[in-house]
Simulated assay, not measured.
Amino acid sequence: MFQDSPIYDRLVAERGDVPTQTRREAERVSRELEYVMRPLQSFGAGPNPDRQASPGTGWQRSALLPGTLPH
Rank of each mutant, 00 (worst) to 15 (best):
G16L: 04
S30T: 05
M37S: 14
E14C: 00
S5D: 15
F2S: 13
E25M: 03
H71N: 14
E14N: 04
R61H: 01
T68D: 11
Q60A: 06
E34W: 01
L64S: 10
P70E: 04
P19T: 00
P70C: 03
G56R: 04
Y8E: 13
D17T: 02
R31T: 12
R15T: 03
D4L: 07
V18H: 00
Y35F: 08
E25T: 02
D4Y: 09
A45D: 07
S42V: 15
Q41L: 13
R24S: 06
E34S: 09
S42Q: 09
P47G: 11
Q41C: 07
T57N: 13
G46F: 01
R31D: 14
P6N: 05
E25D: 05
R61Y: 03
P19I: 01
Q3R: 02
G58N: 14
V12K: 08
Y35N: 12
A26K: 02
R10A: 13
Y35W: 06
L64G: 09
M37G: 10
E25L: 04
M1K: 06
T20K: 10
L69T: 13
L69R: 12
D4P: 02
G58H: 13
A53D: 12
T57D: 15
M1H: 08
L69M: 11
A53I: 03
Q3Y: 04
V36I: 07
M1I: 10
M1L: 13
L33P: 06
Q60C: 02
Q52D: 15
